[in-house]
Design a protein around this nucleic acid. Structure first.
Lengths: 153, 153
DNA sequence: TCTTGGAGTCTCTTGAAGGAACTCAAAGGA
DNA sequence: TCCTTTGAGTTCCTTCAAGAGACTCCAAGA
């Protein structure tokens, strides 16, 4: 995996990668999001080594993305999304759209989303939070912000 | 890095990770997006090992995310985003928003986006491509799609 | 002919990922 | 009371990717 940590870079993309950029982490997040919350379930579903799963879960809990909670009098725990983690699911939804579009082939999307608000099968679309118009890679200029060249505090 | 390939999974998130999930790949994409297109520039900016940079660039070219193009009569090449790659930038923009919100701290965002359409400093927001209402992790149900349990073709 | 510079390739070392066996603690059954 | 079961890790060993830096190759220009 990445032996070099990205967290020192003055870049929110790099910092985000330090939270969920390690191998398996996005898939763990996906599984927890859809309700697979226990160690054994995750391990069986992903086929990940138990050692790595332990490391990833610990990291995600430390980063405040998951919460570890006992669900029994015996030492049994489950992992749940925090609000911080739920907002990370945005990323998964965008990955799903891109994968559906470019990698699903003739078989079509493996999974569909039904949007609660309208009840339709839908995908996400990126829009400007100011004007509401579409906002994608080619639609912006980059400017230095206040946090440029500073480490996060 | 991930020794286990995710590409066999019937999941567009996993498949997308097989394209840009390796360490450094999203940062390479970011750099190319903002106009850093040459090997030496990328290596110097990221501090990545030359061997790994070569591997990543080759993989991204194979996957159709980048295009390798000579820019001189001498053997000199530059890397450019393909349309497939430009759509992947959606992912970077969402990572930037999340990182700004949860990791930037009091210093604030290192980088700002100015949206061409409205000229304002803005961030992306996820909306439903059917009804236009906000669409996030908690706003959808998952259904099996036509490509479920099939490998992509 | 020699030098320069971009774009890699090679080699060596370190350490993360895979895989499988082992541990631990509480509950429930014989 | 002791034994078994089960979820949740922990340990250990092997393999292979990442880091670091030296080396190569090739064409242009001095």
């Amino acid at each position: 995996m990445q032996r070099t940590s990205f967290s020192g870079m003055a870049c929110s993309i790099a910092r985000t990668l330090d939270v969920i950029g390690e191998p398996w982490s996005p898939l763990i997040l996906r599984d927890v999001w859809v309700g697979m919350s226990r160690f054994e379930q995750l391990q069986a579903d992903l086929g990940i080594s138990r050692k790595v799963l332990t490391e990833r879960l610990n990291h995600l809990v430390e980063q405040g993305v998951l919460e570890r909670r006992p669900y029994d009098a015996r030492p049994r725990y489950e992992y749940l999304l925090t609000p911080k983690g739920l907002e990370l699911v945005d990323l998964l939804m965008v990955m799903k759209s891109w994968g559906d579009r470019w990698l699903a082939g003739s078989a079509g999307p493996p999974v569909l989303y039904r949007h609660h608000a309208c009840g339709q099968i839908a995908d996400v679309e990126l829009r400007c939070d100011r004007c509401g118009e579409p906002m994608r890679g080619g639609d912006v200029d980059l400017l230095p912000g206040p946090g440029v060249a500073k480490t996060a505090t």
